[in-house]
Nucleic acid binder design. Sequence first.
DNA 1: CTGGGTGCAAAGTGTTTGCACGTTG
DNA 2: CAACGTGCAAACACTTTGCACCCAG
Lengths: 163, 163
Amino acid sequence: MTIENMEYDTLLDRFKEILRLNNLKFTKQREVVLQTLYNHDEHFTPENLYLLIKDKYPSLNVGIATIYRTLNLLEESDMVTSITFGAQGKRFELANKPHHDHMICRSCGSIIEFEDEIIEKRQIEIAKEHGFKLTNHLLQLYGICKKCSSAKNQYKKEIRSNV
Amino acid sequence: MTIENMEYDTLLDRFKEILRLNNLKFTKQREVVLQTLYNHDEHFTPENLYLLIKDKYPSLNVGIATIYRTLNLLEESDMVTSITFGAQGKRFELANKPHHDHMICRSCGSIIEFEDEIIEKRQIEIAKEHGFKLTNHLLQLYGICKKCSSAKNQYKKEIRSNV
DNA sequence: CTGGGTGCAAAGTGTTTGCACGTTG
DNA sequence: CAACGTGCAAACACTTTGCACCCAG
């Protein structure tokens, strides 16, 4: 559990400040959640994160409820963001990296991140046109990734809507 | 339960054809689900749709499981599409109208539909750049609608992330 | 030493499924 | 009349919550 670099320190300070402002306490559990998110550049489900932390810090004896509570807290305070996949629940990632969107493979579930200036700008314009005060957005492209479309036939629709 | 116009007939025929192709049966319940979606230009939760149908066709004595089963069937066969909101589950709408995306008000939950050629095109380009075979996408803009931002203070963040 | 935090288990959600009976083709 | 569909209730998966104890400030 070494705190090893500047960027993480900044995040940690921000977290502590948020906690302080809201009369919340800085606990080992909250620190470990933040740190684990920082150390692993993944899109965690609460379950994944719980298992990883349980495994890495068995003595903490963390409960999954705490993971949920901490993720919700971090999300409300804009330190993590979440994306929702079809059915299988939310996934969380740290909000410290530059904004990006996701391309999700329907076959293998892999996630490709991307960022596009043109789309970002258009969104702002569109919101403005509708008198809508934009706070954030969600853009997900679904399809089949390079790897899977070269592998034959991993995805097949069950219900045919055409002859 | 009148079938009153051409467009609906087309949808119905398509639905029947899909059912036929997959050896499924055309039932009153399935028809009523399709028809209700057609008659109401809304984004239904399964629950909403269930309550409306229950109310409008009490003699059908429909069960919510059938609503779920039918919506899933319609979605798999591309006759309806769904959008997922933060936590509160999926909402469904008929796929017969031109493609559009959604702006969702965090305060009152209202949904504004929009469509943008520039964004659509960029998505296709981006997917191509990554060798990703795009099947569909999800774009949701979150924020506060015109009405709510003129009404004072309906939305307030609970957790302050800044001073 | 006080108020918030935690783990646990129970309770909530929203959705799916097994079953016996009903209906479609 | 066979196979699929339905309603019902139970089962599920994911998430939240009540509570007694714990710990940060």
